Simulated assay, not measured.
Amino acid sequence: MIKRKLLGQHFLNSKEIAESIVSEAKITKNDIVLEIGTGLGILTPLLCKKAKKIISVDADQNLIKKARIEFSDFENLVLKSGDGFKTKDSFSIFVSNLPYSKSKDAIEWLAQCSFSHGIIMVQKEFAEKLVAKSKNRRAISIIATYAFDIEKISNVRKNNFSPPPKVDSVILKITKKDNMDKKLISTINEIFSYRRKTVKNILKQFNKETVIEKRVDDLTGDEIVNLAKQILK
């Protein structure tokens, strides 16, 4: 378990919560589901019973080996070891108990993917960051709210995991609105490194001009995305 803790991964041990996640995913027999973090397989068989195909990926080869033995009866299950956020597979629904250390990378990756919706479990503090307003916003807040409609499903206490994390988690439903490319995401992150400056001074960093004197905190999410697009022109 020590290795998993270093990876920021904690195994969900509540069958009831697992069933709730799968139910909220609204999976049909036409869906291809991508599950990142096979773990001990608490979600995997439940997903297999609902979907046309499940692609389940875990960074730990040993867990994938165990899953291949345990779930050998499911013909619609594809198990892979490696970095799930580098997969080129197409999918319609995303389901994951996201490793805490990979949550930001996951959201940025999902913002670039084409899919219908997903159910994710994230650290409570990270969930709050995703939907933060005004001065509490980060670049990831802008990326998340531009790419997705985000709905909170429920809170999950830390005692529902092994090993227990230090904080509680939140289950979120993300519904895809807009795709973003890597350059746009990178530029939004860069804008936030200058968040104390005015738009006029930010654009100077990129050899662009404007008369807008507002600061980043005074802009709407869409205005920040448009500013990033303007920089990329």
Rank of each mutant, 00 (worst) to 15 (best):
L110A: 04
M121K: 02
V122H: 07
K86Y: 14
L79R: 03
F91I: 11
M121P: 00
V122Q: 04
A106S: 13
S81P: 00
S101T: 12
K102V: 15
Q112G: 04
D105L: 15
S101H: 11
Q123V: 03
I93R: 10
G118Y: 02
F115M: 08
I119P: 00
F115Q: 07
E75S: 15
L110H: 02
S81Q: 12
V95N: 01
K88W: 00
A106R: 06
F85K: 03
L77P: 00
S92V: 08
P99A: 14
M121S: 11
S116E: 14
T87R: 10
K104N: 14
Q112E: 15
L98C: 05
F85I: 15
Q123P: 06
D105M: 15
H117S: 14
K88D: 12
S116R: 15
D89N: 13
S90C: 11
N97L: 09
G84W: 00
S114M: 08
Y100V: 10
S116M: 06
S96I: 05
S114K: 15
F94V: 11
S103N: 09
F85T: 12
E75V: 14
S81K: 12
S101M: 04
G82P: 01
G82E: 10
E108G: 10
S96M: 12
E75K: 15
C113L: 06
K80D: 08
G84C: 08
L79Q: 07
K88P: 01
G118F: 01
G82Q: 05
S96L: 13
G84R: 01
S92K: 13
T87C: 09
N76Q: 05
P99F: 08
V122A: 03
F94M: 13
K102A: 15
S114L: 14
F115G: 11
I120N: 02
S103P: 02
F91Y: 06
E108T: 14
L77N: 00
D105G: 07
N97E: 07
F94I: 13
C113M: 14
L98A: 04
I120Q: 07
S92D: 10
K102H: 03
S116T: 04
Q123A: 08
K104C: 12
D83Y: 02
H117G: 08
F115V: 05
H117M: 09
F85G: 07
N76Y: 04
V122G: 01
V95S: 07
D83G: 10
K102R: 13
F85Q: 05
V78I: 13
Y100C: 02
F91S: 09
Y100K: 06
V95F: 05
D89K: 09
K80C: 11
S114F: 10
I93C: 05
S90T: 10
K102C: 09
D83M: 12
Q123M: 05
G118H: 09
F115L: 07
F115C: 10
S103M: 06
H117N: 12
I93T: 09
Y100G: 02
A111K: 01
D83L: 12
P99T: 04
Q123Y: 07
G84Y: 02
I119L: 06
S116K: 15
G84F: 01
E75A: 14
I93K: 13
F85C: 12
N76L: 06
E108D: 10
S116A: 11
N97S: 10
D83C: 09
V95A: 05
I107A: 11
